[in-house]
C-alpha cells in the first residue's frame, strides 16, 4: 500500500499535522507567527549547508533552523524590538539561502521543491522521518503540556510555581526547529509557518479549552492536507500551496461559523 505515492503523500500530511496542531496552537497563543516564519525561511540556508557538506538535507535544515530559532528566542528575551528583528532575520535567511543554493548547479532546477514542497515525491524514508519527527514533537509537547501552558499564560505564575519559563520557551524552539526540518519536503520553506498558524487559528473559534484547540488544529491540519492533495491531483496544482489553500478555506468556514454563533 505504501508503494502508492498518493498514500505516502496523504500519510505525510496527516503525520505532520500531529505536530503542527499542538505546536501551532502555542505559536498562536504566544504570538510567534513571525518567529515561525524566520525559522522556516532559514531552512533554505540549511539546504545550502547540507549540499555544501554532504549532510542529509534534513540534518542541514535542522541545524540551521535550530540556530535561527535560538538566536531569535535569545534576542527576544533581551528585549529587542521583535517586529524589525524578525523582519530582518526572516528575509535575510531566505535571501542568503537562495543565493547560497544557487552555487550548486543541480539544485537550481528543483529549488521550487524546497520553497513549496514536493509532497507527491515523498519516499518511504521521508515518511519515516516525518512521522518520527512529528511524533517526537507531539510527545515532547504532551509531556510538558501543563508547564508549557502555565508559562504561556503568565511567566510570573510559572515562576511562582517553580516552573522556569526560559526552559519551556526553549522546548518550543526545539520543537519548531524539528517541525521545520521534517516538513520542508511536505509544504516547503515558504509555507511551513502557514501550516502552523492557519489550522490553529481556524480551531480557535471552535474550542473552549486549550486541549480542544490543539486537537481541533490537528484535525483541521490533517483535513487540509487531504483536501489539498485532492486539489493538487485533480487540477495539477502545486501540492504545498494547495494544502495551505485548503487550510485557508477551512479557516474562513470556521470564522463564519463562529460569527453566526457569536
Amino acid at each position: 500500500m505504501l508503494d502508492d505515492f498518493l498514500v505516502r503523500a496523504g500519510l505525510a500530511g496527516v503525520g505532520l499535522s500531529l505536530a503542527t496542531g499542538p505546536l501551532g496552537a502555542f505559536v498562536v497563543w504566544r504570538r510567534m507567527a513571525y518567529f515561525g516564519d524566520a525559522t522556516a525561511h532559514a531552512a533554505i540556508l540549511g539546504v545550502a549547508l547540507a549540499l555544501a557538506t554532504d549532510l542529509p538535507i534534513v540534518a542541514g535544515t535542522l541545524v540551521v533552523a535550530l540556530a535561527m530559532a535560538v538566536t531569535v528566542a535569545t534576542l527576544a528575551a533581551r528585549g529587542w524590538a521583535m517586529d524589525t528583528t524578525l523582519g530582518v532575520l526572516a528575509h535575510s535567511a531566505l535571501a542568503f539561502g537562495l543565493v547560497a543554493v544557487s552555487f550548486f548547479p543541480g539544485v537550481r532546477t528543483d529549488l521550487s521543491a524546497y520553497l513549496f514542497g514536493d509532497i507527491l515525491a515523498v519516499s518511504r524514508a521521508d515518511l519515516m522521518l516525518v512521522w518520527g519527527g512529528a511524533l517526537a514533537v507531539a510527545a515532547l509537547i504532551a509531556w510538558r503540556w501543563q508547564r508549557l501552558l502555565t508559562a504561556t499564560l503568565s511567566e510570573d505564575l510559572a515562576h511562582a510555581a517553580g516552573i522556569r519559563p526560559q526552559r519551556e520557551r526553549m522546548v518550543l524552539v526545539l520543537a519548531l526547529a524539528v517541525v521545520v526540518a521534517v516538513s520542508l519536503k511536505v509544504v516547503g520553506a515558504l509555507l511551513i509557518a502557514a501550516l502552523l498558524i492557519i489550522p490553529a487559528a481556524a480551531a480557535r473559534g471552535l474550542a473552549r479549552n486549550p486541549e480542544a484547540m490543539a486537537l481541533m488544529a490537528t484535525l483541521i491540519g490533517a483535513a487540509a492536507a487531504m483536501a489539498g492533495l485532492a486539489l493538487s491531483l485533480w487540477q495539477d496544482t502545486p501540492a504545498g500551496p494547495s494544502i495551505i489553500v485548503a487550510a485557508a478555506v477551512l479557516f474562513a468556514a470556521s470564522a463564519s461559523l463562529g460569527r453566526m454563533r457569536g
Binding site: 497563543w29 499564560l153 505564575l157 510555581a161 480557535r204 473552549r208 486549550p210 484547540m213
Partner: peptide, 18 residues
C-alpha cells in the same frame, strides 16, 4: 493577569494550572 484572546480557557481549566 492578561489572557490573550487567542487562548480559549475556562475558569475550571485555569484552576488546574499548573
Amino acid at each position: 493577569l492578561h489572557i490573550d484572546r487567542s487562548m480559549p480557557l475556562t475558569v475550571r481549566r485555569f484552576l488546574s494550572l499548573p
